[in-house]
Design a protein around this nucleic acid. Structure first.
Length: 283
DNA sequence: ATAGGCACCTGGTGGC
DNA sequence: TGCCACCAGGTGCCTA
């Protein structure tokens, strides 16, 4: 579910109520999500000031005054809900506990942040901030697509000799970090590349052309998320999901949006996941 | 090293 | 209403 833009939207929504605030209490309602929580997580969070909220790929990272960083992954179904009255601008009554409310953070500014994740593919960990680059989950990540570390030659080199479909290559977090099923589909549509094409057989110029497209697709989605922030703050305080229209994702059988194209969007399953594409525009 | 498939979970939807 | 199959925005791990 949440890909880089949704995670960034969550980060931006949480930042105003978390950065500079102290965690006065943390309720940890089960022993694990995808993996066991780190030892004594609640105690290690309690009393810590959140110095900064960052994002790396699909991870939200909260740097704590203790020198540790809280790592959060939303998995497929993770959500964050803000309640309370931390800023004058939005007021949400604290809701009754819901099923799958696994972790609840209480801030000294009155905000309550509830992490809810039905499928429990999400994860949390505490890592020494200074050693974050060695963390198992972060160490394997490729370049951040919106940073300068991501550029033509990086992607061209990564695709070279690859016998895997371009769809899989772009989903590979070691090649570029943060893309998921939706935004890979959207990227390949804009690039006019069929998702079944082998990564290693695409002309270098065309691979290079993916770089600005990926940046645009993610950037536009982040903007859409940002503009929705105010709305759901006023609505129910829930972060991470927002209305966004896609060119191909979820549009099987619907008309291709390319001007003059009369084809309809097709769906194929690649390594167990749906790929949506226009069979005429994407070759 | 690389590619492919499975596993981990719950909930929603649509068909019978 | 009930049951069932299928689908879902992720990704680590195992196998060949």
């Amino acid at each position: 579910m949440p890909e880089l833009p949704e995670v960034e939207t969550v980060r931006r929504g949480l930042a105003p109520v978390m950065e500079g605030a102290v965690i006065t209490r943390a309720d940890v309602n089960r022993p694990d999500l995808r993996w066991p929580f780190p030892a004594r997580m609640a105690e290690r969070l309690t009393g810590q000031r959140v110095e900064r909220l960052r994002r790396r790929s699909k991870y939200v990272l909260a740097d704590l005054s203790s020198g540790e960083t809280l790592l959060v992954h939303l998995g497929m179904s993770g959500r964050m809900l803000i309640s309370g009255d931390p800023l004058g601008a939005f007021v949400h009554e604290h809701p009754a506990a819901q099923k799958h409310d696994h972790v609840v953070f209480y801030m000294d500014n009155g905000a309550r942040i509830t992490f809810n994740d039905p499928r429990r593919f999400g994860a949390m960990d505490l890592i020494e901030t200074a050693k974050q680059d060695d963390h198992k989950l972060l160490a394997v990540l490729g370049p951040e697509p919106l940073s300068n570390d991501f550029h033509d030659s990086i992607l061209v080199e990564a695709f070279k000799g690859r016998n895997t479909p371009v769809k899989s290559a772009l989903l590979d977090q070691r090649i570029v970090a943060g893309l998921g099923n939706i935004y890979v589909c959207e990227t390949l549509f804009r690039a006019g590349i069929n998702p079944k094409r082998k990564a290693g057989r695409i002309a270098a110029a065309k691979v290079a052309g993916l770089v600005p497209i990926i940046r645009d697709v993610l950037g536009e989605a982040i903007e859409a998320g940002g503009s929705s922030l105010r709305d759901f703050r006023q609505a129910d305080g829930e972060l991470g999901y927002f209305q966004h229209s896609f060119d191909v994702y979820g549009r099987e059988g619907a008309p291709c949006k390319t001007q003059g194209c009369v084809a309809s969007i097709a769906r194929v399953v690649q390594s167990g996941r749906s790929s949506f594409y226009c069979p005429v525009c994407q070759r």
